[in-house]
């Protein structure tokens, strides 16, 4: 699904965010990426849909080079990859429906989308996506009228409307309270299991990784230093391992608790 071959990223200010990453993520996985802030988690994610450019090496999506893709080819890759963000990044001054429909723009002629015209089949896709995250009743509301958890669900619906093969989640619950956190994570898990959409999430809370992920990747100082399948993993062992990834004991805010 996604493959990194010798990928490094150096930012213009000289910071080496990632150093020679080799990584392969298979179809259907639910991968949690864990690490301290500044470790390179977000950079890793953003290289997968070319929101940022790699300095060295190459990233592949379904065997196709993301790094070298331009123009139409790049759009074709991106529209198959949904992404949700810590800050939700839905357009607050638009209706929920228009937000979700905007997930379809790359599948339609621009001349129609800029007039706000979408085929009925796309509207059905949008309704189904909203139904999937149980927020169909808000379809005609303005996005700014929704709560944080609801906004993140609209963001998930927008990504689902792309009918993606891969879902990237950059700290998807970092701005949410514990109850809505569990809701949003449950939806991501449901989408991963029911629709077989590969999911890669940067997570701050290690127990969310424990509860939801099928595989955990630990990043530290721009390198992948930990990579395990969660099946049959012992919880105590896992937490001990993560202290190694963090290079210190886990803080209380990194564990949500039961």
């Amino acid at each position: 699904m996604i493959e990194f071959k010798g990928v490094s990223k150096v930012y213009p200010n000289g910071v080496r965010a990632l150093n020679n990453i080799n990584l392969k993520i298979e179809e259907g996985e639910f991968v949690a990426i864990i690490g301290l802030s500044g470790a390179g988690k977000s950079t890793l994610l953003r290289l997968m849909n070319k929101l940022i450019d790699a300095t060295e090496g190459e990233v592949f999506f379904q065997g196709e080079s993301v790094t070298k893709a331009r123009g139409r080819a790049l759009i074709n890759i991106r529209r198959q990859i949904g992404m949700i963000f810590q800050g939700f990044n839905i357009v607050k001054r638009m209706s929920v429906m228009n937000n979700v429909l905007s997930g379809r723009v790359a599948y339609n002629p621009t001349a129609l989308t800029i007039l706000g015209i979408f085929p009925e089949s796309d509207k059905q896709i949008a309704y189904r996506a909203l139904k999937k995250v149980d927020i169909l009743e808000k379809v005609h509301n303005r996005a700014s009228d929704l709560s944080g958890g609801q906004q993140q669900r609209v963001a998930i619906a927008r990504a689902l409307a792309q009918e993606p093969k891969l879902m990237l989640a950059d700290e998807p619950v970092a701005s949410l309270d514990p109850i809505t956190t569990v809701q949003v994570m449950d939806y991501l898990k449901k989408i991963n299991e029911e629709d077989g959409i590969t999911t890669i999430a940067n997570l701050h809370h290690v127990d969310l990784a424990w509860k939801y992920a099928t595989r955990v990747i630990g990043v530290r100082a721009g390198e992948v230093i930990y990579d395990v399948q969660m099946k049959g993993m012992d919880k105590k062992q896992f937490y001990e391992d993560l202290e190694g990834v963090y290079g210190r004991a886990l803080h209380s805010d990194e564990v949500l608790g039961e």
Binding site: N49, I77, M83, F85, M94, V105, T113, I114
Partner: peptide, 30 residues
């Protein structure tokens, strides 16, 4: 403007015109 909304549109494969229509205009029109 909040560039995050633009970034979201880029990530889902929108071209410049669609970014203008769906991320920038709603923010600056008022």
């Amino acid at each position: 403007i909040d560039y995050g909304q633009v970034e979201a549109l880029i990530s889902l494969g929108a071209n410049k015109l669609n970014i203008l229509r769906y991320a920038i205009m709603p923010q600056i029109l008022p």
